[in-house]
Design a protein around this nucleic acid. Structure first.
Lengths: 181, 181
DNA sequence: TAAACATATGTGAAAATACACATATAAAAA
DNA sequence: TTTTTATATGTGTATTTTCACATATGTTTA
């Protein structure tokens, strides 16, 4: 249900195609919401049926046609209604790596450290990219009127990844200490 | 698919009922995986059909009968096979509050701060409880042989909530600065 | 005295999500 | 020269997850 509000929130800032929305999910929304591209396209169709968005098809010669979506007044009204009057659901997390960590006592220590090292690489990469993105979009912490939300959540993403890396280093230390004994 | 491995991991440590597993999900697994109790009961039934677990029903006079599940050799073998040979999926997150934060530019500043203050309370509570749980279960950082995983992930939970709180304070400061102008 | 909470396990149906696949073309990289 | 990547939007199906509800009883709280 809330996927639509994520999409409406993005459309309230800029009109966009399903493809562009998918890219934005990977770039910025990733810090707090995940969705498959097929799910995004289907939700866009449903929202148009309900009059929350409106689309125009644009022909392109060398690429496939694209559908540009805009938010309607009704859509924006529903977005605000949700934001201000609907209860905040508990966060839902599924972290495959942490699930494995929770069973590290079943596997060899070296293998466990491998998992953490690989995960460190991923998070280091993500951290670098998000920092770069942040510098490009909010140089010296300056943000536009309609960018406040993105500014706050991208900072969340950075802090999350930093905290992840620091925890990872701690966990590796614990494992190495255990390996010695 | 991975829910079953979370359950097998817990059962590999101790036999348990569906009810108890649900409690454990709320207490410790919460830091990396969420599941509804009906989903847990259904997965347990399916796993038993597939011979990964085994159950015995225990009659109780004043409470309803309970089914105590144990992991089978086949179940443990599959758990290890998954841990060591299956690719690690990308984490999936749905955070309703952060989704709202990403649209804070649409609502009054005071209202936005309210959201963050309430969220701070939740995380402060969670942090306290997890710290208490950690002290009870791992006094002075000592953990048993089959508790390594829980030790590492509970520390992750604590650091996550601390980082959350610190980000929250930062965000509130940003909003207050904005409110002044 | 009534309501809520803890114990304990589920079913039926709906909604959300993921997986495999399909289509179509150009540019860039291996 | 073959493969991969980027552009762009989907369908059909399967799996996962949630929601509302059901059952049954003892204790605690308002």
């Amino acid at each position: 249900m809330a996927l639509r509000y994520a999409l409406l929130g993005l459309l309230a800032k800029n009109e966009a195609t399903g493809y562009e929305l998918t890219q934005q999910f990977k770039e910025t929304v990733i810090h707090f919401w995940t969705a498959h591209h097929t799910q995004i396209y289907r939700e866009l169709l449903k929202m148009e049926e309900e009059g929350l968005t409106h689309s125009k098809t644009v022909q392109q010669s060398d690429y496939p046609d694209k559908k540009i979506y805009t938010i309607t007044d009704k859509g924006f009204a529903q977005l605000l209604e949700w934001m201000l009057n609907k209860p905040v659901n508990v966060p839902k997390l599924k972290d495959d790596l942490l699930l494995r960590v929770s069973m590290f006592h079943f596997i060899p220590t070296e293998r466990a450290i491998d998992f953490l090292e690989k995960s460190k690489e991923h998070h280091q990469m993500g951290l670098m990219m998000t920092k770069k993105w942040q510098e490009e979009n909010f140089p010296k912490g300056t943000y536009g009127e309609n960018e406040l939300g993105e500014y706050l959540t991208s900072e969340f993403g950075i802090r999350y990844m930093e905290s992840w890396l620091s925890w990872c280093n701690w966990a590796i230390k614990v494992l190495k200490k255990k390996g010695e004994s």
